[in-house]
Structures are given as C-alpha cells and as structure tokens.
C-alpha cells in the first residue's frame, strides 16, 4: 500500500516534469523564428541604412545597377515610401479614429439593442475580410469614381476600412471594463449624457483606446495588397491625395521585383519591422502609463 502510493507520486512527478519541458520547448520554438527574422534582416539590411535612406526617394534601376555592380551601397532610399505611408496613414486615422470610437461607444452603450448587435456582427465580419478585397472596393469607389485614377485617397480609404473593426472592437472592450458605478456617479451629479462620454468614459479608458489605435496603426503600416490596387506607387515624393503615392511596403515589393535592388529589400523590411515593433512597444507603455481601470 505504502510503496504503491510513493510509486504513484513518483510517476506523477515525472509526468509533471516532462510536461513542463514540453511547454518550455513549445515556447522556445515559437520565438525562434522571430529572432531569426529580425537577425536576418539586421545582418542583410543594416548597410543600406544611412541618412540618404530616409531623405532620398528610391533610385532608378540604372543607378542601382551601377552601384550594385561596383559593389557599392545603392544610392537613394525610401523617402517616397515614407511620405506616402505617412500621408495615407494620417488620412486613414483621421477617418477611422473618430468613426471607430463613436461606433464602439455606440455598441457599448446600446449592447442590448438589436441594431447594435447587428453592427457588432458586421464589424466581426469586416475584420475577416481579406485586405485585397478592401483594395478592390476602394478601387471601385474612389479610383474609378472620385479621383479618376490611382490615388493616396483611395489607399487611405482601404486602410480606413481595415482600421475600423480593430478600433471599434478595442473601444467596446475597453469601455466594458469601466465599472458601472463610475457612470452612475457621473449621472448622479446631473451630468448630461454627452459630457459623461467625453469627460468620463473617454478619459478613463484612454489607455485602452490609445492602445487599440496604435495596434490598428501598426497593422495597416505593413499592409501591401490593398495599396497595389489603390495608391499604386510613385517614384517621386508626393503629398497630393488625388495622385498615386508610394508606401514602404509597396517599395519593398518594387525592390523585390528589381534584381539590382535586392539589398534595399532587406533595409526597407528591417525599417518597417523595427518601426512596427516600436509602435507595439509604445502601445504597451501608453497602456501602462495611463491606466485607470
């Protein structure tokens, strides 16, 4: 009886130990690719990253070929992509942040209403729509009918549609964490409804809202497919929303298609990856700094 019991405990301890190693091994396997990717990009891409990389537009094939065959650094950079990305992301934020916040608050405030539940399901569906399809939609709406040609505006619209479900969901989920007693406290002071929203709900949930927005931004920064059908790309730096512009991920695609510019693929990818990563880190620090709930 006694030995049976100790045998049993021994076996269970062993199983426990094995399981622990299994879990650790699983997590190591998951993070290895991340380090490999960053390491690879850093090793292959760091040479091209200099001041010109940020201030000059992409080189043409001939310049790149000359430099590559001489074994030099390829001249030029990704400035046209940077400005294009900046322009479109700003414009998309301008559309998506207020719309997304308002919709999120609406869904939260009316969560028992059929209409709000309908909107919420639509949001979930929208989140699952492949981004290329959003590109096609923006192409039909904007490129064909409004700007009559590829344009930054069309790119922003496709990015807006991508951001919306992310912001709506995070807004709703953040609001849900606010204790009901905080709302009631505001109302018990005679606060009008709209004031309760913009002086209490939004400030109290600020960290969650900001995190949602930053994560949405980092999602769309790397988006390529919808931009191919809308912003198209442009070799020049442009701030005209009715004209085609480039974007960092579009440039990566261009570089990839030009055998002379392969080393720029690595640099641009490194930059994009680091930028998105730091955006994620920023989201975290904002989340912890302004946390009230």
């Amino acid at each position: 009886m006694h030995t049976e019991l100790t045998d049993n405990i021994k076996r269970r301890t062993r199983t426990n130990g094995r399981f622990r190693y299994l879990v650790i091994a699983g997590s190591v396997i998951t993070v290895i690719p991340i380090f490999l990717i960053v390491g690879n990009l850093a090793v292959k891409g760091y040479r091209q990253i200099n001041l010109a990389f940020f201030t000059q537009p992409a080189p043409d094939t001939f310049q790149a070929m000359m430099a590559a065959s001489a074994g030099e650094i390829i001249p030029g950079g990704i400035a046209n992509g940077l400005t294009g990305s900046l322009l479109m992301v700003l414009l998309a934020s301008l559309f998506a942040i207020p719309l997304g916040l308002m919709t999120g608050i609406y869904i939260y405030e009316n969560s028992t209403k059929k209409y709000a539940q309908f909107i919420r399901s639509l949001t979930e569906i929208l989140q699952g729509v492949p981004s290329i399809i959003l590109g096609i939609i923006a192409y039909l709406w904007i490129v064909k009918n409004i700007t009559r040609g590829y344009s930054a505006l069309a790119g922003s619209v496709s990015l807006t549609i991508m951001m919306l479900p992310l912001i709506i969901r995070s807004t709703e989920e953040t609001m849900r964490m606010i204790p009901i007693s905080i709302r009631e406290a505001a109302f018990a002071l005679g606060t009008p409804y709209y004031k309760m929203i913009y002086k209490i709900l939004i400030p109290v949930s600020f960290s969650g809202l900001a995190t949602g927005v930053l994560l949405a931004l980092s999602r769309i920064l790397g988006e390529t497919a919808p931009l191919m059908l809308t912003a198209l790309g442009s070799p020049a730096i442009s701030f005209d929303v009715t004209r085609p512009v480039s974007a960092v991920p579009l440039l990566i695609w261009d570089f990839y298609n030009d055998p002379n510019m392969v080393s720029l693929v690595w640099s641009a990818s490194l930059f994009l990856m680091v930028f998105v990563l730091s955006m994620n880190l920023m989201a975290r620090s904002v989340a912890s700094k302004h946390k009230y709930i």
């Binding site: 204790p179 007693s181 905080i182 009631e184 406290a185 505001a186 109302f187 018990a188 002071l189 005679g190 009008p192 209490i200 400030p203 109290v204 600020f206 009230y292 709930i293």
Partner: peptide
C-alpha cells in the same frame, strides 16, 4: 439635472473618478 443637483448620492463602493 436640477433634481440631481438638489439630491446628491453616495454609492456602496467608493467611486471617485479615476481620471
């Protein structure tokens, strides 16, 4: 609004505005 200005309320759990 007038009513709630004249009739104040304190709740079960302390609920100062956290912001």
């Amino acid at each position: 609004i007038e009513l709630r200005r004249r009739v104040g309320m304190v709740f079960q759990r302390p609920n100062p505005f956290p912001n």
